[in-house]
Design a protein around this nucleic acid. Structure first.
Lengths: 207, 207
DNA sequence: ATTAATCTGTACTGTCTCGCACAGATATAG
DNA sequence: CTATATCTGTGCGAGACAGTACAGATTAAT
């Protein structure tokens, strides 16, 4: 079915009978719903439509599968974040940022899923050092993206410099994290949107 | 060893050979470190120093044990929160509030534990409705406690009324949630304290 | 056609998991 | 002392779990 426009020539033996990216996407959803520890390889196998040996061959052991899912989520999110933050001014940039996040966090067939990192990686941080540093790294990336956008607004005189861009960025990220937790806890969309509004107002407040 | 000052007379049969409260406290720590799904009854049994049948008899099944731990954590936390918020003015009240939280979140033998609810209950929210509503309830209680204290400060003219007490409370709680996540992710204490400072400054800012 | 390389599914391993049955221990009530 | 009630530990059982060996399937290279 796949049109062979790619230059990459086939490897030697029997080719894969499945799309690795799509399988990962389905495993991601499984992990997102149940978390790392509660998701068994049978769940993943069922979700991806692959038998366990194929999963192991393609992704490694369970922890590697989870980290691959984390990475896929991070990549996808990063693109949406930087697109949202491109808005003409900080206020609309942040509005888009939160609106996109809330839409994602409220998605889920069996209930709102929140953020894969905040809601499922955090719990594993003590037992699994790699996951802990994966999480810390992504938290830092979000902080940095926000700080960069806020610094631009400050340089343009759009908002005052009462607080550093880094401080305001961590505050903006904090509201994001809380929205993720609250979404998964079942909070109403209105509450999440209200929190976003308040955060935008406080950060963009005219001196 | 326990002095029998309590009027409650002994029940009929063989008395418990352990302190139920203390056993629960140790189970709490086990759940706090590894989360609900990854903590087996053998872990709990080892932590509490009790065999599995005693645990079942005293607490019910695994989910009941976890919810009992959640409840113990919530009770304990609520007392400390209301004590901290009793401060003479909002600024010092919030400072104490965050300082106490950061101390707790950074504790842990195998790494900082963050918040039992935010870091371990959230992941179970989709699969276990009771845990989901336990979490939502506690989030609401924290919001309310903060809102009440902030409303007092507003009524006293200590801070302006630009934003409602509820909105500011949710913002303050958001910073708390983010601190919990970041602590477990391994963020430096300085960063957590800086976030607390910024939150206090923004909420208590003179008009 | 033959060979080598890779993928797929079946079936297995040993370990862990939750929860409980049961027997012995320890207390009170009479 | 006897009967009754509750707690404790040993040990079981049925199932889930992660991970893999192996045989058959499918492809490219020769």
């Amino acid at each position: 079915m796949r049109i062979d426009t790619e230059i990459k020539k086939r490897p030697r033996g029997r080719p894969r009978g499945f799309d690795q990216q799509q399988a990962l996407e389905r495993m991601l959803v499984a992990f997102w719903d149940r978390g790392y520890a509660a998701t068994s390889l049978d769940h993943l196998s069922l979700a991806a439509g692959l038998k366990r040996p194929s999963l192991y061959a393609a992704f490694g052991d369970k922890k590697a599968m989870y980290r691959a899912a984390l990475n896929a989520f991070s990549e996808r999110t990063r693109k949406e974040v930087s697109a949202a933050l491109l808005g003409p001014n900080l206020r609309t940039a942040l509005r888009r940022f939160y609106r996109g996040a809330i839409d994602i966090y409220l998605s889920g067939e069996d209930g709102p899923r929140g953020c894969l990192y905040v809601c499922t990686a955090a719990v594993e941080a003590i037992a699994h050092q790699e996951i802990r540093s994966d999480l810390l790294e992504v938290l830092g990336l979000i902080d940095e993206a926000l700080a960069a956008r806020i610094a631009i607004a400050q340089a343009a005189g759009e908002i005052p410099r009462g607080h550093s861009a880094e401080d305001l960025a961590r505050l903006a990220a904090a509201v994001l994290h809380s929205i993720a937790i609250r979404a998964r806890a079942g909070a109403a969309r209105r509450q999440l949107e209200s929190m976003a509004r308040v955060a935008v107002a406080l950060i963009c407040a005219p001196a």
